[in-house]
Design a protein around this nucleic acid. Structure first.
Lengths: 141, 141
DNA sequence: AACGCAAATGCAAATCAGTTGCATTTGCGT
DNA sequence: ACGCAAATGCAACTGATTTGCATTTGCGTT
């Protein structure tokens, strides 16, 4: 599990190295899909060693997001925000409406589109959020 | 504004006809972009005649959404949900990050993409949510 | 046209995610 | 090892949305 020297990573981003931040970072690194602050909190708190306060989780996620380490998304239908590591590569997800599983999608269908949109509207396009909902192969039966 | 006989529309959807529901329906019909429950509440409340309780607005919006008359979206970065008439035609919006203005976009860039995605993943694709963020012409200066 | 009752509304209190103030603790440069 | 700014824990707060309950209203019936 993600045991590279985080001190170095954090320093690079101007982030002070604390146990809590290491725990959140490692947990996010291991997660392959976007997760909520509460999920992180509950999971870490169950393992005595990494226990921490929920507001600390929020503060750390905000910090990581501001520093560009983490991506925050408000797309979930239940209104909760989710967070995932910023792998730099822009990424979208496919969500199963039956089992709520989330899988990342390779590639982004919007690159050219944004260029054209920018020209036709004269907006400066910054980013976009996309989620696709469906039923996964397992749940289709 | 939008004074068709709503009784008929509501009946079709199995919705009991009340003054409050008419007011919300009409307001939504006149709105060209997604709006929050609070915006509806404030606007209607300012005109004595249509004044109503905020929780009623929420209840009506939930009802309309369940009946398919209205589309709800959690996309806003500030965490508020927005609602818009379901014109049946699938639509996306362009949001200005400076002034928060929202304009609808013509057409959807994802139609073909979804077909291909469905084939490659074996998911049954149901729908998608997309928002594009940028800076509008006015705010670019 | 009035009646009755289920459904809708108003109001206030509750909930839930997320934020904040402040006292205490910790990391890190010296 | 020392000192201080920054980070954390905790509890209280905020803002959006929901809910329980008493009152009101719409609508099918008489």
């Amino acid at each position: 599990m993600g045991s590279i020297d985080l001190k170095v990573v954090f320093k690079k981003y101007g982030i002070k190295n604390t146990l809590q931040r290491q725990a959140v970072y490692n947990y996010l690194t291991d997660a392959s899909v976007p997760i909520t602050a509460e999920q992180i909190y509950l999971e870490l708190t169950r393992s005595e060693t990494d226990a921490m306060n929920l507001s600390t989780v929020y503060r750390i996620l905000d910090l990581f997001t501001k520093k560009g380490l983490v991506l925050k998304s408000n797309l979930q239908a239940d209104g909760k925000s989710t967070y995932e590591m910023n792998h730099m590569e822009h990424r979208h997800h496919l969500i199963c409406v039956k089992c709520n599983s989330i899988v990342p999608i390779k590639g982004c269908p919007l690159e050219d589109y944004e260029k054209r949109l920018s020209e036709s509207t004269n907006y400066k396009i910054l980013e976009h959020h996309l989620e696709i909902l469906g039923v996964c192969p397992k749940c289709r039966q």
